[in-house]
């Protein structure tokens, strides 16, 4: 006997919504990891430079947060997918 799977409209819609949620999660999660990796090198360099010259704190802070744009792109993509 062959088991038949019946795909109703409701099931298809729920599946699509679930996939969107997974995609959005991956978009934010993976870009978050990428940001972390990028900041892993910039952070110690920024702290080291500031320890030697306190005047450049503002500049190095700016340089440290530049990789945050990656996760912001991920967040934008995730929001576009969900809404």
């Amino acid at each position: 006997m062959v088991a038949e799977t019946i795909m109703t409209v409701e099931v298809a819609e729920a599946s699509a919504a679930g996939m969107k949620a997974i995609g959005a999660g991956l978009a934010v999660g993976l870009t978050g990891i990428a940001t972390g990796i990028a900041e892993m090198a910039i952070g110690p360099a920024a702290v080291g430079a500031t320890a030697e010259n306190k005047d450049i704190f503002g500049l190095v802070l700016l340089l440290t947060v530049i990789p945050e744009t990656i996760v912001i792109f991920g967040l934008v993509v995730a929001l576009l997918m969900i809404f």
């Binding site: 090198a41 110690p44 360099a45 080291g48 430079a49 320890a51 030697e52």
Partner: peptide
């Protein structure tokens, strides 16, 4: 990890 090298060499 690379952090300690980066910190010291930047200084």
């Amino acid at each position: 990890g690379p952090g300690s090298y980066i910190y010291a060499t930047t200084r």
